[in-house]
């Protein structure tokens, strides 16, 4: 199988109803970098039909009987990717280099991520690029308060595109930005101005690209550092979801990788639906360079190895976005698993 970074990257575009997701998608497809991208949409009317390769997914979700909601297979998505892949292999469609998947406005993105991770054909030819979430500056604050899907979409994002900032009251836009930065400090915030957005910023430097992962991790760590140092960071949780909050665990001493895997799999087994995001840089005992861990609910992506530390800071830092789980308990639990391993 090809090295992970050489697989075809998938970009997921998500965002709440009316947040400008379709507008963004159309803007993206006009960019020269995406003229060779395949696009999977929910409705043909959503994107310009003059784009060279657009396929529609038929709504077909398989809810696995004893599974949990986030471990739903989007069979429509799976079949669409597999069919397109087959056509690409046989030369029936042009050899696209990227694929963009549009979600519906109310979509919980977790089933998509789970689906991408669950099929052997998809895993052997595709990798996650970025998750791009649009948030509307006019309605975003209210949506985050009232709709769990909106919070989830923002939690899993690698890039957040703020739309309609030109028509939103400036205070609202600023409060929204602050709330999003606190919810998901590692997501890059990009503004769409008059519907225009820097498409290159959306596509570049994803964490799985071997050429750019170092720079992406540096950016993400700097953003988290800034967010953690803001006054009131720990106490200012958003109101709808005062039970959904973000924290960073820091460990000075190296972590035992085996113990970490045992701990995280057990945590996600027991609480995966409530662990919206785990993302961290780990100092692993016996390994000179850091390991990046990135998970969305039950799905943990292949760990990434950097060639070197991005800076002098050698601490492990793990960001959690959780729903109703005690931060201190998570911290104590991981520390206990790690300490027991070191004593083994």
């Amino acid at each position: 199988m090809a090295a992970y970074s050489r697989l075809t990257p998938l970009f997921i575009v998500t965002g709440f109803l009316g947040s400008g997701k379709t507008t963004l998608l159309n803007r993206m497809l006009r960019h020269p970098a995406l003229k060779d991208a395949a696009v999977l949409v929910n409705e043909f009317g959503d994107v310009g039909l003059d784009h060279f390769l657009v396929e529609k997914m038929d709504e077909n979700t398989v809810l696995l009987e004893s599974g949990c909601l986030c471990c739903t297979i989007r069979d429509d998505l799976k079949q669409a990717i597999i069919e397109l892949d087959g056509k690409r292999e046989r030369g029936e469609v042009p050899r696209y280099k990227r694929m963009i998947i549009e979600t519906t406005g109310l979509a919980d993105p977790s089933p998509i991520i789970f689906t991408l991770n669950s099929d052997i054909i998809i895993k052997h030819h595709y990798r996650l690029g970025s998750i791009i979430t649009t948030v509307d500056a006019v309605n975003g604050l209210a949506q985050l308060k009232r709709h769990g899907e909106s919070v989830k979409q923002a939690s899993v994002a690698d890039r957040i595109v703020l739309t309609k900032t030109d028509i939103a009251p400036p205070d609202d836009a600023e409060r929204l930005r602050t709330k999003l930065e606190r919810l998901n400090p590692s997501a890059e915030m990009i503004e769409a101005v008059d519907g225009e957005v820097d498409v290159k910023r959306l596509l570049r430097a994803d964490i799985y690209d071997a050429r750019t992962k170092g720079a992406e991790v540096r950016r993400w760590l700097a953003a988290e550092e800034k967010s953690a140092n803001e006054p009131g960071h720990r106490h200012d949780v958003n109101r709808h979801d005062e039970h959904i909050y973000t924290f960073t665990l820091t460990f000075d001493a190296p972590l035992d990788w085996t113990a970490f895997g045992i701990w995280l799999t057990m945590l996600l087994h027991a609480h995966g639906e409530k662990v919206l995001r785990v993302k961290g840089i780990l100092n692993v005992k016996g390994v000179a360079a850091p390991v990046i861990i990135n998970g969305v609910q039950h799905v943990v992506h292949p760990p990434i190895h950097l060639k070197a530390w991005p800076d002098e800071d050698r601490r492990s830092r793990i960001v959690f976005i959780v729903d109703y789980i005690d931060r201190k308990l998570i911290e104590r639990s991981l520390a206990a698993f790690n300490a027991a391993a070191l004593a083994a």
């Binding site: 199988m1 471990c71 990788w257 292949p302 990434i304």
Partner: peptide, 25 residues
């Protein structure tokens, strides 16, 4: 709890790829 998250995965699990991850460059 999800009974199926372990079942549907194939290939080495990320925890068993050791610190090589199995798929990193």
């Amino acid at each position: 709890m999800c009974a199926l998250c372990g079942v549907l995965m194939d290939g080495p699990h990320w925890t068993e790829a050791g610190t090589d991850a199995g798929r990193s460059d």
